[in-house]
Amino acid sequence: MVDALTRSMRASHILVAILVVASLIFAVIGVANGDTFYLRLGTEALIFAGLALSVDILLGYTGLLSLGQALYFGLGAYVSALVLMVTPSFWAATGAALGVAMVVGAVGGFIANRVRGVYFALITFGMAQVAAKVVYNTRALGASDGLIGVPIIQINFGFAAISSASPAGFFLFTLAFIVILYAFAAYLLDTPFGRLLIALKANERRVPFLGYDTVTPRLLAYMIAAVIAALSGALYPMLRGFVSPELLFFSTSGNAVITVVTGGVGTLVGALYGGILLTLLKSVVGSYTEHHLVVIGVLFMGAVIFLPRGLMGIVRPAIERMLARRMKS
């Protein structure tokens, strides 16, 4: 017997499958046209979609608005860049980003989870600001210039290798990577542990009376989100060959929240579609006007007013109904 929450998650899977197929077609067209620009833009979109995914785990499933998720994204990017400059190994870079994100996420989560609501948002914002300032002022991290000259790497699977410089190859690799992060999050959120997070969002005060501690699950959710943000960030220097303090700025955190809200809060897949939409918009609008932030801001306001449940808030229920009918018959 599949319940409504599992059915919604399955509807998200279908939408992710559609996205994957569209991405494959996009890659084929890109390769056929010898394109580099759009494939690399698509790769960047997917990387920021990974960051948005981590925001949705907190906002859409645990009821926590993080305004500082860039902290972990930037952390992952810098750790990855530093490791790659020493040893050009994908596994070492992502492994290090994962480890550091777990530790920093545990500390950050411990601090931020002492408060709720708007105070949680402000603390996450504050922690990211502090981290950004520290990076900005640290010579060893390139200060305001960031770290440049991250080498091109071969991502080695033993049986095959993908170069981070291959537009289509690295696009497809990033697609697989982000889909795995999605699958991991989607799996966790449909377990009793994940349902406990949903319960915390729905009515935190009742949860202790069901026999559950509320501190640990909230901390775990925060750490999982930190890890997903950091792993996404770890791909950034592989794509761009550099990292800069802007990755930790509020604009990065804020964009991730906008991405989730436009895509559909509490759907996971909304973060992916939203991430692609926003990156595309920024690029297209940015080629016409320098004031692309104004356009994005206006579009965001429009989305909140006219599509309060986001893009997926409209599309996904239709798929859920289809699944419900299919299960009955």
């Binding site: 599992t6 009793p192 542990f193 349902r195």
Partner: peptide, 12 residues
């Protein structure tokens, strides 16, 4: 059972 799919929680 906390990290198995909810559908596996037969007792619950």
């Amino acid at each position: 059972m906390a990290l198995r799919p909810v559908t596996a929680s037969r007792v619950a």
